[in-house]
Design a protein around this nucleic acid. Structure first.
Length: 280
DNA sequence: CCAAGGCCTGAATG
DNA sequence: ACATTCAGGCCTT
């Protein structure tokens, strides 16, 4: 009998979902939008804002979900090995900017860029006698100069960050509305933002907008599918076009079901650990 | 519809 | 010591 209740915080933080987290002895501290979270080993959250949030998606029925994605030996092993891994419900604006910044980059670099964005544009607060910089609001990033953004290390993505922020500030992108939409509608809308392609859109939808059928296909996931599922998903080419991405996503949700996003997270975690890739 | 090349940065390799 | 290659996703041609 598997223990579906206990959260493994270490594995959850170190799974490519979040970047602005650091460990301090037995606690993890992280920025989540305008909030700072402190989480202890047993998963108990203390927040700067004192607002209640369901960061760990506690209402998800893990037993049902994990059983439903365990379609084969590969997923069964990944689920068993990383059982306490959770999908997080992140602050949407921070998640959106984070994954726009993430494109063509890696975890260490993304973390540095986002820290710079917070330091340069975010509000400084004190929590537990430590100094933190909150994630800046859309209006601030929208009015930042391109040079100021570039100074954060975001390179050619700087203009994407600026325009994406403007689109949120002007309410052309409304996260509360996107949460209510179905997966395909939300994806279509968010894909109009420059710098948001298939993969980035799926990350935003999965990690902050409650779309559990999103299955971000980055280079790692493509490799994983080629390696473990060569016959099921029949990957034809190396680089994947927009159209092929959509066809593949259809096959994936057909196979793993409505909670495919969870399958993605377990497979990604497993393979990155197999290759001893560094996390935060 | 697809293929190819450019964008930016830092780490790894020659 | 320096130059080249590579990893990473999106957009334009």
């Amino acid at each position: 009998m598997l223990d579906y209740c206990t959260i493994n915080l270490e594995n959850t933080i170190n799974s490519g979902q979040v970047f602005l987290w650091k460990r301090n002895q037995n606690n993890w501290y992280g920025i989540n939008g305008r909030d700072v979270l402190k989480i202890n080993e047993s998963g108990k959250i203390k927040s700067f804002s004192k607002q209640k949030i369901d960061f760990f998606r506690e209402k998800d029925n893990l037993e049902e979900i994990l059983k439903s994605i365990s379609k084969d030996q590969i997923t069964k092993e990944a689920v068993k090995k990383y059982l306490g891994l959770r999908l997080l419900r992140q602050d949407p604006f921070q998640c959106y900017i984070s994954f726009i910044v993430s494109s063509n980059s890696n975890i260490q670099k993304i973390k540095i860029c986002l820290e710079n964005i917070c330091k340069n544009f975010g509000k400084k607060v004190f929590f537990d006698n430590n100094e933190f910089f909150l994630f800046p609001e859309p209006k601030i990033l929208a009015s930042a100069s391109l040079q100021e953004l570039k100074n954060c290390g975001t390179g050619y993505r700087s203009n994407f960050v600026k325009i994406a922020s403007e689109m949120v500030y002007s309410k052309e992108i409304n996260f509360d509305y996107l949460k209510k939409c179905d997966y395909f509608t939300a994806k279509e809308i968010i894909s109009k933002v420059p710098g948001v392609g298939n993969k980035v859109a799926d990350c935003i939808l999965l990690f902050s907008l409650d779309k559990l059928e999103a299955f971000p296909l980055d280079r790692w996931m493509i490799r994983i599918l080629e390696k473990y599922y060569p016959n099921i998903f029949e990957l034809s080419t190396k680089s994947i076009t927009k159209n092929q991405y959509e066809i593949l996503h259809g096959k994936i949700t057909n196979y793993f079901g409505l909670f495919s996003g969870y399958a993605q997270q377990f497979l990604f975690k497993m393979e990155r650990e197999n290759y001893k890739k560094k996390w935060l």
